[in-house]
Amino acid sequence: STVKVRLGHLEVTLHNVSEEDVRELRELWKNGADEEDLRRWLEEWKK
């Protein structure tokens, strides 16, 4: 499914993403990950 995730002022649209992935991303964000960390996660996730 396609999910729009809003993290601060960063809005990311993920395609074919699982609930688990979204949860993981939100956890990262809650734990103080900055945009760099999130971008890195997204790069990994896209592979």
Rank of each mutant, 00 (worst) to 15 (best):
S1G: 11
S1Y: 10
S1W: 03
T2S: 10
T2N: 07
T2F: 06
T2E: 06
T2I: 10
T2A: 07
T2Q: 07
V3R: 04
K4C: 10
K4E: 06
R6A: 08
R6H: 10
R6D: 03
L7Y: 05
L7P: 00
L7F: 13
G8P: 03
G8L: 02
G8Y: 02
H9W: 10
H9V: 12
L10Y: 13
L10H: 14
L10Q: 11
L10K: 10
E11Y: 06
E11W: 10
V12W: 03
V12M: 09
T13K: 03
T13L: 09
L14Q: 00
L14G: 01
L14A: 02
H15A: 06
H15F: 07
H15P: 03
H15I: 09
N16Y: 06
N16R: 06
N16P: 03
N16T: 02
N16M: 06
N16F: 07
N16Q: 06
N16C: 05
V17C: 03
V17W: 04
V17P: 06
V17F: 05
S18R: 08
S18Q: 07
S18W: 03
S18H: 07
S18Y: 04
E19D: 13
E19V: 10
E19L: 09
E20C: 05
E20W: 03
E20G: 07
D21M: 14
D21L: 11
V22R: 07
V22M: 15
V22T: 04
R23K: 13
R23M: 12
E24V: 15
E24F: 13
E24S: 14
L25P: 00
L25I: 08
L25N: 00
L25A: 01
R26Y: 13
R26K: 15
R26D: 15
R26E: 15
E27A: 05
E27Q: 06
L28G: 01
L28R: 06
L28N: 02
W29D: 12
W29S: 14
W29K: 13
W29I: 15
K30Q: 14
K30H: 13
K30V: 13
N31K: 09
N31P: 09
N31F: 03
N31C: 05
N31S: 12
G32H: 06
G32Q: 06
G32F: 04
G32E: 06
A33M: 09
A33C: 06
A33F: 07
D34G: 14
E35F: 10
E35I: 11
E36W: 04
D37A: 15
D37F: 07
L38F: 11
L38N: 00
R39S: 07
R39I: 13
R39Y: 11
R39H: 08
R39N: 08
R39M: 14
R40C: 04
R40K: 13
R40W: 04
R40S: 09
W41G: 00
W41F: 04
L42D: 00
E43Y: 04
E43D: 14
E43A: 06
E44C: 08
E44A: 13
E44M: 07
E44D: 14
E44Y: 07
W45S: 03
W45M: 09
W45E: 02
K46H: 14
K46D: 10
K46P: 05
K46A: 14
K46T: 13
K47H: 08
K47C: 07
K47N: 11
K47M: 06
K47T: 09
